[in-house]
């Protein structure tokens, strides 16, 4: 091994092979997936996000939410994700077709958020959770995102703004979510990987033979 070109060519061949195997080949299969038309509802899955939810995805990225939260549900038998109620089925590649960037996360300090829009659809809950998680869940380690809110002292007899969070959030103050907070909550509400797919049907419950069957995608 006294030839520099050998090192170069060997490294290049190894990297090109891994690139082909891990990126090019999967791109030709899962990279070309299209949204599925669900016959029962007539809607496409996954649906494109609304403007506000799309903006919220960027807030989610900028705040680094994926440092503590994943968006991937493992199949039954690989961890307790489904038993914890984080999803009715495992997540598959098709669930992320509308995401940019894809924020699947790698570490869970908080719960998985794949289906948070279904598990907790209440916008006020999410806003309060962002403002001060410990109001709702004493002992929570989630940081406060107070900078996503305008906090103003309430004068005596002054009625708080309609957009303000409930008075108990910060007694004596009105807490008004900024557009970033509203967008982030719209994004969280849009997170729902709960449509049974051909590649990911709902798992069959042991005690229930009449399992939910995935609707066949329209060809």
């Amino acid at each position: 091994m006294n030839q520099t070109p050998l090192i170069f060519l060997g490294s290049f061949a190894a990297m090109a092979a891994s690139f082909w195997g891990l990126v090019v080949a999967p791109q030709n299969t899962i990279g070309r997936q299209q949204a599925t038309l669900i016959q029962d509802t007539g809607a496409y899955y996954p649906a494109s996000r609304t403007g506000s939810a799309e903006a919220g995805a960027q807030v989610y990225r900028a705040q680094g939410c994926a440092e503590c939260h994943t968006q991937q549900v493992r199949p039954k038998g690989q961890g307790g994700d489904i038993d914890r109620g984080w999803g009715r089925r495992r997540t598959v590649a098709e669930d992320y077709l509308a995401d940019q960037p894809v924020q699947i996360g790698a570490l869970r300090l908080g719960p998985d958020l794949s289906n948070i829009g279904r598990r907790q659809p209440d916008a006020t809950y999410h806003l309060q959770n962002l403002y001060n998680s410990r109001l709702l869940k004493p002992g929570s380690l989630m940081p406060r995102y107070t900078y996503l809110f305008d906090v103003r002292p309430l004068g005596e007899g002054v009625k708080p703004s309609e957009a303000a969070l409930p008075a108990a959030t910060e007694p004596g103050f009105e807490v008004i979510p900024k557009p970033e907070a509203i967008a982030l909550v719209a994004y969280l509400q849009s997170l729902a990987a709960d449509v049974p797919l051909f590649s990911a049907p709902f798992p069959i419950a042991k005690t229930n033979a009449a399992a939910v069957v995935a609707p066949a995608p329209k060809q």
Partner: peptide, 28 residues
């Protein structure tokens, strides 16, 4: 030498396919 070769490869492949011209869905 191998590390010197790998770095620009990784930077260009990673950033092109995940950030600049992102692949679709989970391929990112």
């Amino acid at each position: 030498i191998s590390a010197l070769f790998a770095f620009p490869w990784l930077m260009s492949v990673g950033y092109m396919l995940a950030v600049v011209e992102p692949l679709r869905g989970v391929m990112q």
